[in-house]
Write a protein that binds this DNA or RNA. Structure first.
Lengths: 225, 225
DNA sequence: GTCTATAGTGGGATAGAC
DNA sequence: GTCTATCCCACTATAGAC
């Protein structure tokens, strides 16, 4: 049992980075399944054994891809959030930014997506291992809400970022299945879905609707616990 | 390229059945991943190569499992639908019936679930290959609606069965991730989610809400096309 | 702690003879 | 339609260099 996982020295860090970079490049070029660990090791200039010294399995290399996407999304989202003030435009802008960032990897994403879908997998967006990335993503949606002109009951505003993140996961699910060119159907969904959410949230000020909205929030809270 | 997939002779059908039966038994005993194609072939009394003459891949064997579940769900749902008349009770009953049927396979389901999540996979619930099973499932939800006391705009009633099926898929997603004992959190979700849907659909008769509901339906129709 | 080289194992999938 | 033999590749094991 080697189990270093996180390198101890600067040199180790460099080697690890070389392996990850080589992997991501090959994944994008030939796809996940057609990229062998031997090819990754070769391309990184290390032995197969050494590659396994740094990455626990081929699947674990996917986490590196997530991390990169998250960082890029944050950067793009920050631009939108600095410019827009209305809830709708902030929401749509942030969501579109994600699919802008993800677009080059659409085919690749479809191939390895199944690894993220397994509940027990550390790659699942709901896993404990994914918590940092998940929290970072939810934080973006929190900014969408708090920096906006949105008016709604406090109980709803508090739960909303997490709900938007969940919706985002749903969009991603749609996206990986979306074979329309440029994934324009996903764009359509994001645009119209955003307008819908905007209307729905504002509707919660109507007495008849508010009760239902509070039930939704109660249910979400219950299931989170 | 052999590509028989569906056997030509009675003998072939028998061989295929033996393979599928052996596979399902082993899957339930030891789980999907720990069951090798060699073990399946052995257990069915055929050679490995012959097994591959009948099933395109190990993943394809999962379809057989789906089919069995679908048949059992239909049977249980029929009992509920014969007894209940209110929309809420019909919906909740049918959904609970599914998780009753699925319960013994919860662990197994988590293990192979990822195979269903890959968009390109024939095992995806959205794939063309899954259309028969999907339509059969939607048909159950259509019965939930049409045989009930539910009153709502026609445009909504038409789209509702498919939406309920989608919600059902969401529940299944939650279920495979649900580690609470007996998956009681999923039961809770189904119960409270059902009550929520009931209220929401009836709310569509309010003028302010109706517009939003029609937008939702429009969006769904657009994305289906 | 980092890395190489080499030799395996196990299991999904295929080729080609019969 | 059925077999045997083989391929391929993720992954492991080990022994040792720096």
């Amino acid at each position: 049992m080697p189990e270093p996982a996180s390198p101890k020295s600067a040199r180790g860090e460099q080697t690890r980075a070389a392996i990850v970079t080589a992997a991501l490049e090959l994944f994008r070029e030939r796809g996940y399944e057609k990229t062998t660990m031997r090819a990754i090791a070769d391309s990184a200039g290390v032995s197969l054994g050494n590659a396994y010294y740094y990455v626990a399995s081929k699947e674990h290399l996917i986490q590196a891809f997530y991390d990169r996407m998250q960082v890029e999304h944050e950067a793009q989202a920050a631009i939108v959030l600095a410019d827009e003030t209305t809830f709708l435009r902030r929401l749509a802008g942030v969501q579109e930014a994600f699919f802008d960032v993800a677009a080059p990897y659409h085919e690749f994403a479809g191939k390895f997506f199944k690894n993220a879908a397994e509940p027990a997998s550390p790659l699942s967006p709901f896993s404990p291992e994914s918590e940092p990335a998940r929290e970072a993503s939810i934080a973006i949606f929190r900014q969408v809400v708090v920096g906006s002109d949105l008016k709604a009951p406090a109980a709803i505003l508090i739960e909303l970022p997490e709900l938007l993140w969940l919706m985002h996961m749903g969009y991603v699910l749609f996206w990986v299945h979306d074979t329309s060119d440029g994934q324009r159907r996903t764009r359509l969904l994001v645009q119209r879905g955003g307008a819908l959410v905007d209307r729905l949230v504002r509707l919660t000020r109507l007495p008849g609707v508010r009760g239902v909205a509070e039930d939704v929030m109660g249910l979400v809270r219950t299931l989170k616990a």
